[in-house]
Simulated assay, not measured.
Amino acid sequence: MSFSTQLRKESDVIFQGIFKHPFVDGLGKGELPKEALIHYVKADFEYLNAFINIYGLAIAKSDTREDMQYFQEKIGFILNSEIHPHNNLCQVAGVNYNDLKGFPLPPTADHYVGHMKSTAQQGSMGELLAALLPCPWTYLDIGHYLKDSFNPGPEHPFYEWITFYAKQETASVTTELRDRLDRWAETVGEIEKEKAKQAFIKSCQLEYAFWEMAYTQEKWPFTMVTEEV
């Protein structure tokens, strides 16, 4: 059993919980509050900016130009492709995508970003890959789960979102990250792999928490108002 397959098996309870989360279920049913969609897009835009930062740190940790080029291409995927599912949610919510950019991260998303950045800065390349992997992997599985469970047609409000994450291009991101993590795991000891495993599981937990954050429209306890001088 490959290292990534083992990680997926041990975290299956979290994946199953994500599939059953009311936000994900609402995507399948085509029924979600406008406010939850907006909250999700605001947070996810900034989260993906952080994801780009992590790819940049991966480039800094890379020893070969092939690795550097790989992570550079993944930055391009986020910048040029992942705007499409965001636009789908904005269309359903009836808002302009550009109006949802640049907002502070809610507590859970802020914690998730902090986890990824600290892991990338202080950990090995394997820990970095393990911290990143749950995001594309859970979304890939969500896309297939919703497609199989609800069989959405083009008239479905979230058809573009679901089909985007169920398509081959998204699957390739997950497969490539898994392959890199598995190759790394073959060269290190059990202590290093355990650290990567913990990074992976924590990211899985935070993926679930991210959906909960969006559905409940989580906010910081106090709203701070800056007085003009």
Rank of each mutant, 00 (worst) to 15 (best):
48 L>K: 12
9 K>C: 01
102 G>P: 02
206 L>M: 14
75 I>C: 12
149 S>A: 15
119 T>C: 02
171 A>H: 15
177 L>A: 13
37 L>F: 06
110 D>T: 02
93 A>L: 04
117 K>M: 14
206 L>A: 11
157 P>H: 04
144 H>M: 04
125 M>H: 12
148 D>F: 05
184 W>N: 08
29 K>Y: 01
154 P>K: 07
128 L>R: 00
112 Y>R: 01
78 I>H: 01
14 I>S: 13
8 R>S: 11
5 T>I: 04
73 E>D: 13
157 P>D: 07
202 K>S: 04
66 E>W: 03
166 A>C: 08
182 D>T: 02
4 S>E: 02
126 G>P: 07
58 A>Q: 07
34 K>T: 14
143 G>V: 03
58 A>I: 02
106 P>V: 05
197 K>L: 06
29 K>N: 07
216 T>Q: 15
141 D>V: 12
174 T>G: 04
192 E>W: 00
67 D>M: 13
97 Y>L: 15
139 Y>N: 03
136 P>E: 07
164 F>T: 06
82 E>W: 12
8 R>F: 11
46 E>M: 12
85 P>V: 14
21 H>R: 08
81 S>E: 15
47 Y>I: 02
96 N>I: 09
192 E>G: 00
182 D>V: 02
87 N>F: 01
123 G>Q: 09
223 T>A: 04
183 R>A: 15
168 Q>N: 08
141 D>Y: 12
218 E>K: 11
17 G>L: 06
52 I>T: 13
145 Y>A: 04
143 G>I: 01
186 E>G: 07
104 P>E: 11
49 N>S: 05
13 V>G: 05
88 N>C: 13
118 S>K: 10
145 Y>W: 05
227 E>Q: 10
143 G>L: 07
181 L>A: 07
